[in-house]
Amino acid sequence: MSTDYQQARSALGSRLREMRTACPEGRLTGTQLAERLGWTQSKVSKLENGRQTATADDLRLWSVATGQPETYDELHARLRGFESHIRSWRRQLASGHQPVQDTWNELVAEASVIHEWEPTMVSGMLQTADYARHVFLRYSELQNSVRDTEAAVRSRLKRQEWLYRPGKRLRVLLWEAALRTLICPPSVLAAQLDRLAGLIGMDTVELGIVPLGAPVKVPPANGFFIFDDRLAITEDWHAELWLDDTYTISTYRRVWQALNESAVFGADAQRVLAEARRNLNIR
C-alpha cells in the first residue's frame, strides 16, 4: 500500500477519533460508540488508527452516532480523495465487472488521446467479444467475483465506439507476448489477431508491436493507460492505481515513449501478427 494512501487513511482515522471525543452530548469511548453503532470495538479502533478503510456507509453512521451529521460530506470527500488513487479489486468487483467497465467507459468518453502499453494480453479497446468473454471469466475465477460476464462484455464493446469518433486517437503498444498468450482457445485468439490486423491503418488507431527479440530501453513491465496527460491508470493483482500528479504522469509518458522506440508498425506489425497466427496452426 502506498505511503500517500496510508497517510490519507490515517488522517481520516484521526478525524474520526476527533469527532468521537468531541461529541456534542459528551465524549464517547470507543466501546460506547461501538455499542451505539452495533459494531465491534475492534472495528472502531481499526478505523481510528488507519488500519481499515471506511466505507461511505461507515462514515454516514459515524457522523450521525457522534451527533455531527453535517460532517458527512467532508468525510466522504476525504474518502473519495484517497480511494481515487488506489481502488481495490475486492471493492470494485463487489457488484461484478460491468460497473467497472461502465466507469472506464466514462473515462474514455472524456479523452481525446489515449496512450496504452499492454504486455500480457490484447488491449480491451481492441478485443473481440469472444476474447473479452474469456478474459472476464478468468478474472472472475481469480477474484471470486460476481459473474456478470455477458453484461461486462457488452459494456467493454460499447467503449470501442469511441474509436469511430472524429478527433479521437488511440496509440497502443502491445508486446508480442500478448499476441501469443492463450488466455482463450486458439480459435478465439486467431480471430482476435485477425481483428488486430484489420485495425492497422485505421485513422484513429496507431497500433505498435514490440517484438520479443527487440532491444528495449526499459523492462516491459506492467501495462498502463494515459488519458490526455491528465491521468495514468495501471493495475496490480490487488488493485487498480489511478495516478494524477504531473510527475508520475510524465514518468509513464517517458516509459511509453521508450517502448514506442522498440515497436514496429504498419507492414512490419502485420508480419508479427501473421507469424503469431501461423503458430496457432489454425486455417
Rank of each mutant, 00 (worst) to 15 (best):
R90S: 10
Q92H: 05
Q92W: 11
L93M: 04
L93Y: 04
L93R: 00
L93H: 01
L93N: 02
A94G: 01
A94H: 05
A94D: 09
S95K: 08
G96L: 05
G96W: 04
G96P: 02
H97D: 07
Q98W: 00
Q98K: 10
Q98M: 11
P99F: 03
V100Q: 09
D102A: 14
T103Q: 14
T103E: 15
T103H: 08
T103S: 11
T103A: 12
N105P: 03
N105D: 11
N105M: 12
E106L: 08
E106Y: 02
E106Q: 14
L107A: 09
L107M: 12
V108I: 15
A109C: 00
E110F: 00
E110L: 04
A111P: 00
A111T: 08
A111S: 13
A111G: 04
S112F: 01
S112D: 06
S112W: 03
V113N: 06
V113D: 08
V113H: 08
H115E: 13
E116V: 08
W117T: 04
W117N: 03
W117A: 06
W117K: 06
E118V: 08
E118S: 13
E118A: 15
P119S: 03
P119I: 05
P119R: 09
S123M: 14
S123L: 11
G124K: 12
G124F: 12
M125K: 11
Q127T: 10
T128S: 15
A129T: 10
A129W: 05
D130V: 07
Y131R: 07
Y131G: 09
A132Y: 04
A132S: 09
A132P: 03
A132V: 02
R133G: 04
R133P: 07
H134P: 00
H134G: 03
V135R: 10
V135L: 15
V135D: 00
